[in-house]
């Protein structure tokens, strides 16, 4: 038992998939411990899905190796897949099959699916399994994908952008399901391009950029390096505490227009809240930056052309 616990849920060494022209995944060295929730963060085209497909044995590495619970992802693909629940980035089309038939189909391929567990998840997400797949909304298709990944109580969940298409209520339900699954002993590896999502649920976060793992951070570290755009509106006649805010730790790019103040906050909000305490604030909006802006801030890279000036 102790020996089993020591094996990493996921480990990769110099894992490379080179599609040419600088596209792909390069020299990935990753270690995800058992019962860890690991967030895999990166903008579109950064190599998240390529990593996941390499772990699932869908594609073969150009170089290096990947292991799941010590099993080689290419050589022992069958054994790996017994232990893994997989949610692909795009839910495939099942046409006129009903939801329950899709579950039975894939459950029949896998074997050993607990029907009560399936029912519990379907009820939880209010997913009507008596409807045809074709009639499902994109959110319901995503719920079905989640159900298919969780239906056999896998030891490891590999989830590619799992909350895309889910409404906020179902996103919260999903986060709760993740916490319970992790508490039940499972390991979770989820990819996302939304910073706040991985903050919700992950213990650690790997940040991928242009096919390379550039940072693995604990949740606390991520909080310290996070950035928010903040807009504060003060009550009419109230003095705007601009000087106090300029002096506040982590507050940058401050501008004032009438009673409205805009700034960027690095790390937590403690200093900002302290600076505006005592002032009458009628509105405060904090916006999470896009992942590109986060990279800009974090790595000090030049602003990509696609970003608004």
């Amino acid at each position: 038992m102790l020996r089993e616990m020591a094996v990493a849920a996921i480990s990769t060494s110099q894992l490379t998939k080179d599609y040419g022209a600088g596209r792909g995944l390069f020299d990935l060295g990753l270690h995800v411990s058992q019962q860890e929730v690991f967030g895999y963060l990166g903008p579109n085209g950064s190599g998240k899905t390529t990593t996941i497909r390499l772990l699932m044995g869908m594609i073969r590495p150009t170089n290096g190796s990947a292991h799941v619970f010590g099993l080689d992802c290419v050589r022992d693909a069958m054994e790996v897949k017994r232990k893994v629940g997989y949610l692909p980035g795009d839910i495939p089309q099942f046409g006129s099959l009903r939801g329950d038939e899709v579950v039975a189909y894939l459950g029949g391929m896998r074997g050993g699916v607990d029907r009560r567990h399936v029912r519990a998840i379907a009820e939880r997400f209010d997913l009507d399994l008596n409807r045809r797949f074709r009639e499902y909304s994109s959110g319901n298709k995503q719920k079905l994908g989640i159900l298919l990944a969780f239906m056999h109580r896998p030891e490891l969940l590999i989830l590619d952008e799992p909350t895309s298409g889910l409404d906020p209520l179902n996103q919260q339900e999903f986060y709760e399901l993740l916490r319970e699954t992790r508490a039940g002993g499972a390991t979770i590896f989820l990819s996302s391009h939304v910073l706040s999502e991985v903050e919700h649920v992950c213990d650690r976060v790997g940040i991928l950029r242009r096919g390379r793992l550039v940072k693995v951070a604990e949740l606390g570290e991520l909080t310290r390096i996070r950035v928010h755009h903040v807009e504060v509106e003060f009550a009419p006649g109230e003095e705007v505490p601009a000087e106090r805010l300029r002096a506040a730790e982590g507050v940058e790019d401050l501008s004032v227009e009438g009673q409205r103040l805009r700034c960027t906050v690095h790390g937590n909000f403690d200093a900002l809240l302290e600076a505006i305490s005592g002032s009458r604030v009628i509105d405060l909006v904090s916006t999470e930056p896009s992942l590109e802006e986060f990279f800009l801030s974090f790595f000090g890279e030049p602003k990509p052309k696609a970003l608004p000036s």
């Binding site: 699932m56 044995g57 869908m58 069958m78 897949k81 692909p88 391929m109």
Partner: peptide, 17 residues
Amino acid sequence: AEDSDGRLEIFLSQPLS
């Protein structure tokens, strides 16, 4: 079609060779 629309991928994510 199974290959291009992702069904093959999800079939292969089951323990089938």
